[in-house]
């Protein structure tokens, strides 16, 4: 277990201070990149609870983000209910969906890829459902009105700086929450289940209950990311909100950064977003269509080949932490 020593604490304090003043130091482009980093760090942290801690592979997390986003955006769009209230509905919807997916999967002991297939199936048929549900605007999408220069915190309307601070808060809160969870009985029970569910049950771990808690907590946090996402981008389409690609991109930061580690999702998000931006720039220079994706894919391949446990465990060892 990573111990949070005074040295690490100091490093974290400096990092947090820098993040707090970042909007004053960075231009519009820099801030938008940092927003992406924090978004992927946050949503990766949420997914990591299920896979990294409890060992349950979900490849359908777009379901929870999509439900969160659609519920909050729909309530605002149709009834003018702001996202601070709407997020509760979004979270409730995601938790309900997660409870169904989790119960079906865990009660009937679907493991590994079979469970993963179930998560994909739920995201897919929710996508098809939303494509045909008039309340969501169907496949034509749902658009939130954009008012330039207006900052309305109550309705989460405003510029990038507002969204930056919201996602920063979420990322920090998720980090602290995961740390607390990991250092609790529930967290240790998750690790035991990840390592060997049958042995865990023999030492008194209520396996089904712990797995259900993992999937619902993970879904609730992911739904908040969805709410943030919907209000940041101001548009939602079933085709993208519940897409397989969306689910996959949620998983990348923790996998690259280090599954089951607290710092992994953040480190992974920095590396992935950084590489993404560099390859976009290189692609623009070279003017070869699709070259960005090729570079990006190769980079992921190289990282996973040489650091299969992720970048963070290796980095932590080099920094002498742990």
């Amino acid at each position: 277990m990573s111990r949070i020593t005074p040295r690490v604490m100091g490093g974290l304090a400096i990092l947090l201070a820098l993040l707090l003043v970042a909007p004053a130091l960075l231009g519009g482009y820099g801030l938008s990149v940092l927003i992406l980093v924090l978004y992927f760090a946050y949503v990766g942290q949420a997914w990591n609870i299920m896979m990294g801690f409890a060992g349950q592979l979900s490849l359908g997390h777009a379901l929870y983000a999509g439900l969160g986003g659609y519920m909050a955006a729909g309530l605002y769009f149709h009834y003018g209910i702001g996202p601070w209230a709407g997020m509760f509905v979004g979270v409730a919807a995601a938790v309900a969906a997660a409870a169904v997916v989790g119960y079906l999967g865990f009660r009937f002991s679907l493991a590994g890829v079979y469970f993963a297939l179930l998560t994909i199936a739920f995201a897919e048929f929710t996508r098809i459902g939303f494509d045909n549900w008039p309340w969501t605007g169907e496949s034509g999408g749902m658009f939130l009105r954009v008012e330039r220069g207006v900052t309305d915190v109550a309705n989460l309307r405003g510029g990038p700086v507002l969204f930056y601070y919201v996602i920063l808060f979420l990322a920090v809160a998720a980090f602290v929450l995961c740390r607390l969870l990991l250092e609790s009985r529930l967290g240790r029970y998750w690790l035991a289940i990840r390592e060997d569910a049958e042995a865990a049950q023999a030492v008194g771990v209520p396996v089904l209950k712990c797995k259900m808690l993992a999937v619902t907590i993970s879904a609730a946090l992911t739904a908040l990311a969805g709410v943030w996402n919907a209000f940041y981008y101001n548009n939602l389409f079933p085709e993208t909100a519940f897409a397989m690609g969306r689910s996959i991109e949620i998983t990348l930061a923790p996998i690259i950064g280090g599954l089951g580690t607290l710092f992994g999702p953040f480190v992974g998000a920095v590396v992935l977003t950084g590489l993404g931006e560099i390859f976009t720039a290189v692609g623009d220079k070279l003017d070869i269509p699709g070259i960005k994706q090729v570079f990006y894919g190769l980079a992921l391949l190289v990282i996973v080949m040489y650091r299969p446990a992720g970048i963070w465990p290796w980095l932590a060892a080099r920094l002498g932490i742990k």
Partner: peptide, 18 residues
């Protein structure tokens, strides 16, 4: 069936958490 990736102490701690 030890919890392979965890330390010896963590293995036994999980039992004790019961």
């Amino acid at each position: 069936r030890p919890f392979r990736g965890l330390s010896v102490l963590e293995n036994v701690t999980i039992g004790a958490l019961h």
